[in-house]
Computed example of a mutant assay.
Amino acid sequence: MDHAALAPYVRHVIEEATLAELPNHYRGKVRDNYDLPDGRRILITSDRISAFDIALAAIPFKGQVLTQTARFWFERTGDICPNHVIAYPDPNVVVGQRLSILPVEIVVRGYLAGTTSTSILTRYKAGEREMYGHRLPDGMSPNQKLDRPIITPTTKADHGGHDEPLTEAEILDRGLLTAEQWATVSAAALGLFARGQEVAAERGLILADTKYEFGLDGEGRIVLADEIHTPDSSRYWFAQSYPARFAAGQSPESFDKDFMRNWVVARCDPYKDPIPEIPSEVILETAAVYIRAYETITGQAFPLPETAENPLERIRRNIAAYLQSDRGPKA
């Protein structure tokens, strides 16, 4: 989708999703959450994009892309692991079960990749070979496929904190999960990742790595939460160009979601300097990247709205209609 098609929607964004009529509001980096008395949670995905520990801007349709991409995957993986979804009353909204989130984030990696301090490529370049309870061989190249996908769990840091690497032994010794919970979560994560890689391959994509969040429902059952295989939670590469680029020592071709981040870094030190105003063409380019990701991953055309209705007012109306119906069907 080009800029011309998106230009009318440059201000069609959800920066805040604060709805005073809903109870128990919690604001995350991207989502605004509301806990209903009956155990349901309303999650509204805004269009905020965060980097450098701040919200940089609001990107048209980013929240809708994340919600609907996760929906695509939730509907195709329910046979592997139950998920929290109850209903989709709006393109930016999911109603889910309220869960007790497990204190371990599950990251599954199929390739030697990543840039953060917890990524296996960063640690491999630093000379480590034993990590997360796995041993990697010498002589591997950046972005090389692993012999098999591995789980690299981390702690779930508090806001502003940093995730810490974990091994299975540490998870069990510290009582973060029981042996049964770890076995269930591990099997589910590897099964979800295998399904993700299979479907991605049909779309000409490589699902290189991803993260999952699990919680416990009221009966103690492990349930998949948050989102799954979205452009924000997963690393996707284009399969066709991967072999040649890998052979040449080049980074794989991917959805360039760092377009805005790179624009900012080229103009200031974002951790010290004021962030310059981000022009509309950069915002629209970022929107186009997210929409391209949705269309490539799902194989479906992204539906632009026919009217310029304020998206937050649309959300308010749709949630009200959902709650008044009191039936909670999946849309």
Rank of each mutant, 00 (worst) to 15 (best):
D90N: 15
I101W: 04
G175W: 09
R317D: 10
G220I: 09
Q300M: 12
P270M: 08
S325I: 01
G28I: 05
S325P: 00
V107W: 03
P8E: 08
D326L: 11
G161N: 07
F246Q: 09
V199W: 03
L19T: 06
V289P: 07
T67G: 02
E164N: 09
I228C: 13
V94Y: 08
L207T: 11
A244I: 04
P8S: 09
G218A: 14
L6Y: 07
T296H: 08
H84E: 12
E16T: 13
A58R: 03
V289N: 11
P274W: 07
T178A: 08
A4G: 10
S100K: 13
G204P: 02
M1F: 11
P142V: 01
A321M: 07
D209T: 11
I14Q: 03
A287E: 05
A244S: 14
L56S: 01
P60L: 04
A331Y: 05
A188I: 00
R71E: 09
E281A: 12
A248W: 06
N83R: 09
K257R: 14
L176W: 06
I291Q: 10
L121R: 07
K62Y: 10
L190H: 08
A287D: 02
C81E: 06
A225R: 01
H25R: 14
G160S: 03
Y212T: 03
S46P: 03
N83K: 09
T155L: 06
R195V: 11
I297K: 01
A331R: 12
I86R: 10
A126V: 04
T118R: 05
W263K: 06
A157M: 10
R267H: 13
N33A: 12
P91R: 02
D163W: 02
Q324G: 03
P311H: 07
I86W: 04
G110H: 06
L99A: 11
A126Q: 14
E306D: 14
L172M: 07
E16H: 14
K125W: 00
G114C: 02
I54S: 12
T69L: 05
L66E: 09
T18E: 14
V13I: 15
S117L: 04
L190S: 01
E21P: 00
M140L: 15
A179P: 00
I106Q: 01
R314A: 15
